[in-house]
Computed example of a mutant assay.
Amino acid sequence: MLLSAFFVIIEDKIESNKVKLVNNYRIRLIGILTITALRFGFYSSDMMTGVVPFSWPALLENLLLTLLMAVTIWEATRAVVVYFNKRHPLHYISGHRFAKEALFVILANTLVYALTLLLFFFTDPESEPHAVYLFFGFLDRFLYGILVAAFYELLLFIEAWRTATKEAEELKKVNLMVQLESLKNQVKPHFLFNSLNTLTGLVEKDPSQAVKFIAELSKVYRYLLQSNEKELIALSQELQFTEAYFYLLQTRFGQGISLQIAITESAESYLIPPLTLQMLVENAVKHNQVSARKPLHIKLSLEDGEWLRVENNYQPKRNPAPSNGMGLSNIASKYRLLSQPEVIIRSDENSFRVKVPLIKPVSHEHIYS
């Protein structure tokens, strides 16, 4: 299960590499020449040992026929491998799949062999087919066909594993960078100062609300610590964390900020990279004016059932702080490494919108469990 689901995540990423591999002309040429050399070597040895009378025309004829045989075996088998890798992705690897592919390799080479024989006997009608010759000719093509198919499948598997390993390492690096960036933003002095300052005011004015503030603050940090090792998490958990994080913001800004969540329960089982919503909400607060006179309205909603849209009214600060754009860049990089559609960013004079794709939970549960 772990290996098959791992291939699900990176399968789209390696698809282009697979196509290049099976279409590589150098591999095809070397493979065809290798089969030709092996098959022709057997015939030449018969001539050299005197089993078959030596004749230059016969030697040349056999070389051409062997080359034709190698081309038909290689290309027919390659076509079967391409077909099966399109119809049956890597995460469907099973004995049944390979047995089916082997059967198709036999059928394809049998068909090509039959067409070759028809052509041969059509051009030389006086030749009489021998059962032993036909049987060993079929066996010859079957064995070489299986070897070619096994060779390609091994190449594809090695390429998939190499790409998967590389992508996994890159994903870990980006994931760590996102986690550290978020933790850095949360624990930097001004955030702690603002949170503690708000808490001090609440303790004096409203102790019960202060207790709730501490509870929500603990939820924020607990989520940050628990999500460190996860690449994907359920949208429902991300929303709970976002609500706790927003409570801290609302306690601080009061009527200057609002959050509307318009997401159905059926969509909450979808997956999303941890801290995505927190970074988008924080991005909105960071770059816009937030006050009772100019309230910031943030809305989370679904679009087309497969996208999560985060939208806020656009009211840029008069003296904005320098921004390196790392928040949005990190989110986009993470979705890219997960082989998901690109994050969409749109803005106009009235609003700023970010759309992130929701990931279906099928075959991914183990990642965040």
Rank of each mutant, 00 (worst) to 15 (best):
H287I: 01
H287S: 02
H287W: 04
H287G: 02
H287T: 06
N288I: 06
Q289C: 05
Q289S: 07
Q289K: 05
V290K: 01
V290Q: 03
V290S: 03
V290F: 02
V290I: 14
V290D: 02
V290P: 00
S291T: 07
S291G: 08
A292E: 11
R293F: 01
R293M: 07
R293V: 11
R293G: 03
R293I: 06
P295M: 03
P295A: 04
P295N: 02
P295Y: 04
H297Y: 08
H297S: 14
H297M: 12
I298K: 01
I298Q: 02
I298V: 14
K299I: 11
L300T: 05
L300E: 03
S301H: 03
S301C: 04
E303S: 07
E303K: 11
E303G: 00
D304Y: 08
D304E: 13
D304W: 07
G305T: 12
G305S: 03
G305M: 07
G305K: 03
E306V: 15
E306Y: 13
W307H: 08
W307Q: 11
W307S: 03
W307F: 13
L308C: 07
L308G: 08
L308W: 01
R309W: 01
R309N: 11
R309L: 14
V310F: 07
E311A: 06
E311G: 00
N312S: 10
N312V: 09
N313F: 09
N313A: 09
Y314E: 10
Y314A: 13
Q315W: 07
Q315L: 13
P316N: 03
K317M: 07
K317V: 01
K317N: 05
R318W: 07
R318P: 00
N319C: 03
P320W: 09
P320I: 09
A321I: 09
A321P: 00
A321H: 07
P322I: 10
P322N: 08
P322V: 11
N324A: 07
N324R: 08
N324D: 12
N324G: 06
G325K: 05
G325S: 06
M326R: 11
M326L: 15
G327T: 13
G327C: 09
L328W: 05
L328C: 09
L328Q: 14
S329V: 13
S329T: 15
S329W: 15
S329F: 15
S329G: 12
